[in-house]
Simulated scan of single mutants.
Amino acid sequence: MSDAIDLQSTRSGRTYRLIRTFRIGGRLAHEAQDDLGNRCWIKQAPASDEAAIARLRYEAIVLAKLDHPGIVRLLDRGRNRSCFFLVLSQAPGRTLNELLEGRQLALSFVLTIADQLANLLHYLHAQGIICRTLTPSALYADHLGRTTYVDLSMVWDEVSLPDSTEMYGDPTYSSPEQIIGAVVERRSDIYSYGVLLFELLTGRPPFQGSNRGDLALQHLLTPPPNIRELRPDLPQDLVALVDRCLAKLPAQRFPNVTALLETLCAIATGTALEKASLVPR
């Protein structure tokens, strides 16, 4: 007798068989297979937890209006007596957490991911969506560096009124203004992007602490470590880009993702030209 659990969508009528449990960002999820044999992911909230259901519904509303190859797609949703659930497309590759595992990644691979993430942020900001936190557990990448944003549970759109008194997500990747309870805006995402890029380049985030309070104080008061001491081979322009993203004051960061992308493109082009000049002729 099989112990497999089936969920039926009240929206499409499709049945989904749960195969295994894993995590998407900070939430438990399931790999599943629908009645046509297609593989998918399912995120669910218990029927007794109305706050979790409201958050999942909001994530569904956001996903339904997005269309980008770097974002998981909403395929279906449903509710039964035990839970409310979303059905999502699968992402190729592994989480950035799994790819990192405390080691430094190849510079060319990091630059590919950095470009993909910056373009993803550019798209989301154009749709009026703020990420609020970018964590390696919320992002998948394949062997070519093609990156997919799989956990949008922390995002909000700029027409909504967020609870500015709550610090959302993992404090390792939170901006200083988010930590003090200010309403976050687009340059907060640039800070989180800088934290993640620092980690991709060095194998560790710029700030590490044993508790949320310690991390919060470091984001607010402590300059980030000299990234070149952790990885001496980095181009100076890339070091300057990371430092600018990690500025404590929003006004000292890139004014928008467009400016960030322009700088990143110039760095990538310069790195490629430098490599080409080293090839024997």
Rank of each mutant, 00 (worst) to 15 (best):
I5T: 15
F198H: 15
A251K: 06
N119E: 07
A251W: 00
A91E: 05
H30S: 09
D163A: 10
S12Y: 09
R281E: 11
K43V: 14
Q252I: 00
V110R: 03
I180Y: 13
L217A: 03
A106G: 08
A47K: 02
R132S: 07
G37V: 05
K43A: 13
S9R: 13
T202N: 00
D233V: 06
V195T: 10
V242N: 03
Q33A: 08
I179F: 05
F207D: 07
S277N: 12
L100S: 09
T112G: 01
A106K: 11
W41A: 14
V155A: 13
C265Y: 03
N80E: 11
E166T: 10
R20V: 02
E98M: 02
T112Q: 10
D214G: 13
Y173W: 15
G13N: 07
N226C: 13
E98S: 09
T271G: 00
M1N: 12
W156C: 01
I24W: 02
Y140E: 09
G194V: 03
D76C: 02
A276T: 05
Y168P: 00
P223R: 13
A126E: 14
N256V: 06
S9D: 05
L152P: 06
A52T: 05
N226D: 15
E185D: 13
F85W: 07
R79Y: 00
T258N: 10
L107W: 02
L139S: 02
D115T: 15
V150G: 11
D214F: 08
K43S: 12
L86N: 04
P280H: 03
P235Q: 03
E185I: 00
A51Q: 15
A64M: 03
K248E: 03
D6W: 12
L238P: 11
E262K: 07
T95D: 10
L220C: 11
E31V: 04
L152F: 14
R231A: 10
L197V: 09
C83P: 02
R77E: 12
T222G: 01
G181W: 03
D189Y: 08
E199D: 11
D35M: 01
S82I: 01
I129C: 11
A91K: 06
E59R: 10
E262L: 07
E98V: 03
